[in-house]
Every structure is written in C-alpha cells, then in structure tokens.
Amino acid sequence: MRSNNTLARLLELELIVVTGKGGVGKSSVSAVLGRLLSDAGRQTLLVEVDPRENLHHLLDVPPSGGEMVEVAPRLHVQHLLPRTILDDLVREKLKVGALVKRVLASPIHQQFTEAAPGLKEAAVFGRCLRLLEGHGPRGIPTPDVIILDAPATGHGASWLGAAQLVSDVISSGPIGHMASLVANFLADADRSGVAVVTTGEEMPVQETLEFLETMVTRLNRRPEVVIANALYPELTEDPADDPDDSLLDLWAHRRAINEEELERLSQEWQGPVAHLPLLPLDPGPALVGRLARHLKTELGGGA
C-alpha cells in the first residue's frame, strides 16, 4: 500500500530511527531520508553510531570522529559515541576536575557504563533530545529532525526499548530523569517514528516481520514506513520470447523473488511500503540524490 500522507507525516517528526537487517542498505536509506527531508525545508541532522562512519562516506564528507559536519544546506551529519556521551555527563554534573578524574577512572563507573543494560543506547537518544532542544554546538542551527542510522534490527528493538528499561531501574537522579524523558519521547507518535529497511529477499523480509511484531508487542508502536531497497526493475519483456537470453532469465528470476517477498510482507504489514530500485551507481552523493527523488514519489510527495 502506498500512503499519500507518509511524507507529510515524516515531515512532522522530530526523530526518525532507521533500522533493518545487516547489509540491506540502512545507511544509504538514512542518507536518502536526510536528503529528502532537508530538501523539503527541515533542518536535518543525520546521526550514526557505527565507528566505520558509512554515512560520512556516502555523503562524501571526511570522517569526523564525532564532530558535527555540514553536508549541504540544512543537512548535517554526526557520529555519536555512546561512551563519550556518558563521560560528558559525568563532566557536566561534577564540574570539579579532580572528582571527574576519579569518577571516570573508577572501575565502578567503567563497569557500570559498560554493563548497565540499555544505558549507552538511552544516552544516545538523550543526546538527540538535547540537540533537538537547542543544546547543540554553538553556531550550528538547532535541528528540526534527527535521523538515527541505528544498528541492525536484532539490536534495533533493544535500542528502542532501552530508555524504558533504564527508566524502570533508575528512578531518580539525572540519568533516571533523562531516561524517562527519552522513553516518553519514543512513545510519543507525534514526535518520533521508525523506518524499517529491507530488500526484496527472504531473510531481510523475515527479520522485518519479526521486528514489526516485536515493536507492536513490546513497544506498542508501529513503524511509519517499511522501505524495500535495491529492487530489480519490473520486467518489460517476456523471457519466454527468448529462452537463450540468460541475462533476461536472471532478471526475471531475481525480480520474481522480489515480488514474492514483497507479497509476503504485504500479507502481514498493511502500513506504507516504499520501493527503491537497484541502480547502476556506486554508493555516494549521486546515488543518494537519485534515490531521494524515488523515495519522494513513493511517499506521496510527487515527482
């Protein structure tokens, strides 16, 4: 089903979490969404948490190691390191240099931040929330929307549930307070949403369906959209006309797999699905631009 108001809906959100199985093109689709929303006038920040900084590569900006980098008008990208956010929190709350050193060096702090369930994930969302509230670096415009290129779906569900978990176990103090703000924010369908990326193949679709179920049962939320990436084009010729044409045959088979899997997806997911084509372009700004135009059409925003 194509929904005409999906784009309008995405344009109202303050946070979009992009997740999906490994290898389906989560980072590409995050970049595409960033391009689309910033083109539509939204001040947009793309956030990645993977140290390989794929998003930087896709947008053709140098690796930043954590700085906020301008990509295009109204579009920035930043690599957030959960560990750094937690250390910053200690610095901010303690202020006294000697104490900060003690706490940061304390095995309790180190072990706690490593092992406390959900803390690092909640901290990333907490930082996003603060950036949205205007507590970002000086001289950089406050984002209207943050797009988070989240880890693969298996971990995606625990990312989304992390803040609630932290908020359940830490009820007071600044961390508990932050976690409960984040949990409310992630539960608020007017402010935050999820986009799930898949390809038209068995495993990614299977994982998407499992993730959809987890979202409904554990988080009581549904994604805004499922984006099916890297689809072979629709057939324009009949392979029966030329049985010796092996490329046509391969095309027909791979397209058939895409269609079968998208059909399976639609059996269980009645929400919006956007299709993105497999294009003869290497990853980079040109590919991102072309896909952004496709996505706009698919989401009901016209050509």
């Binding site: 006294v96 000697a98 104490l99 003690r102 095995p107 309790i108 706690f112 103090g173 508990g176």
Partner: peptide
C-alpha cells in the same frame, strides 16, 4: 562503597555522586 572509602573526603564525594546519578540501590 569500598572503592571510594579509601579516598577519604574525595571518596565520599564520589560515592555521593554515584548515589545522585544512579542510586546506590542500583549499584
């Protein structure tokens, strides 16, 4: 907290910090 005790006043501050941040109960 043992880890902070031997630090004296500084240790008590560190402990108070942990308590304020996450609560000693959780630790």
């Amino acid at each position: 907290l043992r880890a902070t005790k031997k630090l004296g006043i500084l240790g008590r501050n560190v402990e108070a910090f942990f308590d304020r941040m996450v609560g000693l109960e959780l630790l």
